[in-house]
Amino acid sequence: EEPWTQNQQKLLELALQQYPRGSSDRWDKIARCVPSKSKEDCIARYKLLVE
């Protein structure tokens, strides 16, 4: 798996703010905001960050 770039991390953080918990299809929308990362990548990264 490719490491996360600073840019991808920033895009993930912005998308998390844009689509708060409870948004419909939240992770699909977030993944579309982060180039070359899947929905599963984004969820895994999020879990890593909040632990």
Rank of each mutant, 00 (worst) to 15 (best):
L12T: 01
E51L: 03
L11V: 09
A31E: 08
Y19I: 12
R26H: 06
V34M: 02
L11N: 15
E13N: 07
L49V: 13
E51K: 10
V34N: 01
V34F: 03
D41E: 12
S23P: 10
I43H: 08
Y46W: 07
I43G: 04
Q17G: 09
K10W: 08
C42S: 00
S38F: 01
K47P: 04
R21P: 11
P35S: 07
P20H: 05
P20A: 04
T5W: 00
A44S: 12
G22F: 09
C33A: 11
K37F: 02
G22S: 10
L14G: 10
S24R: 12
Q6W: 04
L16G: 03
E51N: 05
A31G: 05
C33G: 05
K47D: 10
I43W: 07
L16P: 00
S36M: 07
K47R: 08
W4D: 03
C33D: 10
K37W: 00
T5S: 03
D28T: 14
S23Y: 11
L49H: 15
Q18R: 10
S24N: 06
Q17W: 05
K10P: 00
C33R: 10
E1D: 10
R21E: 14
A31F: 01
E2N: 08
Q17H: 09
L48S: 14
I30D: 02
A44V: 07
A44N: 10
D25Q: 09
W27E: 05
V50R: 12
L49T: 14
D28C: 06
Y46Q: 14
L48Q: 13
V34Q: 04
Y19W: 09
K10N: 07
V50A: 14
V50T: 11
E13D: 12
L14M: 12
S36D: 11
R26N: 10
N7M: 11
Q18E: 10
Q8K: 01
L16Q: 04
L48D: 06
S23D: 14
E40H: 09
S23T: 13
E40M: 10
D41A: 13
P35N: 06
D25Y: 10
P35L: 05
Y46R: 04
E2S: 05
G22V: 05
Q6T: 13
P35R: 07
L48M: 14
S24Q: 11
Y46D: 13
I43Y: 15
I30P: 02
S38N: 08
S36A: 13
S23N: 06
T5D: 14
E1S: 14
K39L: 05
L12E: 01
L16N: 03
S23E: 15
Y19A: 03
S23L: 13
C42F: 00
S23F: 09
E2M: 15
L11Y: 08
V34I: 15
R32T: 12
R45G: 04
S36P: 13
R26P: 04
S38G: 08
D41W: 00
L16V: 11
R32S: 13
E40R: 09
Q17K: 13
D28F: 03
I30Y: 01
I30T: 02
D41L: 04
S24T: 14
W4P: 02
I30R: 02
D28E: 15
Q6C: 13
R26S: 05
L14W: 09
I30G: 00
S36K: 07
I43D: 02
Y19V: 08
Y46A: 13
N7L: 10
R45S: 01
T5V: 01
G22T: 07
Q9E: 15
D25N: 08
W27G: 02
Y19C: 02
Q8Y: 01
R26K: 06
Q6F: 06
D25I: 06
I30L: 03
Q18V: 06
R45K: 10
D25S: 07
K37V: 03
C42V: 07
Q9P: 00
L48I: 09
D25T: 07
S36H: 13
A31K: 03
Q6G: 10
W27R: 02
S24L: 13
C33F: 14
R21A: 13
V50S: 09
S38Y: 01
Q6A: 14
C42Q: 02
L14Y: 14
K39F: 00
E2I: 14
Q6P: 11
N7R: 12
L49F: 14
S23A: 12
E1R: 02
Q17V: 09
L11R: 08
Q6H: 11
D28A: 09
L11C: 14
C33H: 09
D41G: 06
R26L: 05
E40Q: 09
Y46H: 13
R21S: 12
C33K: 07
Q17T: 12
R26T: 09
L48P: 04
E51R: 13
E13W: 08
K47V: 06
C33P: 01
S23I: 06
E40N: 13
D41S: 12
L49I: 14
R26M: 03
N7W: 12
I43E: 11
E1V: 04
R32E: 15
R45W: 05
D41H: 06
L48G: 13
R45Q: 12
K47L: 08
L11K: 10
K39Q: 08
E13R: 07
Q18G: 03
A44K: 08
Q9W: 03
K37N: 00
R32F: 09
S24A: 13
N7C: 14
W4L: 00
D25P: 04
S38W: 00
V34S: 00
V34L: 06
E1G: 09
V50N: 15
Q18Y: 08
L49N: 13
Y19L: 04
Q18I: 04
A31R: 03
D25R: 08
P3Y: 15
C33W: 13
W27D: 02
E13G: 05
D41T: 00
S23H: 10
W4H: 02
I43P: 00
L16Y: 06
P3R: 09
V50K: 15
I30H: 02
E13Q: 08
L11Q: 15
E51A: 08
K29L: 11
P35H: 09
K47E: 11
L14F: 10
S38M: 05
Q18L: 10
W27H: 03
A15H: 01
P20F: 01
L12V: 00
C42Y: 00
V34R: 00
L12N: 04
Q9C: 10
W4F: 05
Q9K: 09
K47S: 08
D41K: 05
C33S: 13
S24K: 13
V34E: 00
P3I: 15
G22C: 07
P35Q: 12
P20R: 06
L48Y: 07
T5Q: 03
L14H: 08
A44D: 05
G22R: 06
Q8M: 07
L49C: 10
D25F: 04
P3K: 15
L14R: 11
D25L: 07
E13Y: 09
R45P: 01
Q8C: 07
L48E: 09
P35F: 03
R32I: 12
V50H: 14
S36F: 14
V34W: 00
N7S: 14
K39G: 04
K10L: 11
P20L: 04
T5A: 06
V50Q: 14
W27I: 04
